[in-house]
Amino acid sequence: MKVAITSTGNSLDSTIDQRFGRCAYFVIYDTETGGVEILPNPNRDAQEGAGPASVQLVASRDVRKIISGEFGMKIKSLLDSLRIQMVVYKEPEKTVQSVIDMLKK
């Protein structure tokens, strides 16, 4: 299963981005192979519609779970219809690596 984690930088030592739609990078972690892919978010500076566009990006990678600090208004019904799970994790100091370690357990 693939999990997307929003990140502030393009390494695993970066912290979790507290926003979903306009986060800097998406870290896509595969729980079966342990592989990690880092995608820059093209919607980072979008005026509007960043959330739905990011959902599309993440869904195209076949992600089943998204971990972020916050999700916008338009996101929930979209993700519900795509059957993607949302995890709201409000720990701005935690690094992406620590989240991956939690998922491994």
Binding site: L79, D80, I84, Q85, M86, V88, Y89, K90, E91
Partner: peptide, 10 residues
């Protein structure tokens, strides 16, 4: 355990 919120779409 970790204080996160989550939903279950399925």
């Amino acid at each position: 355990g970790c204080g996160c919120y989550f939903n279950q779409p399925d």
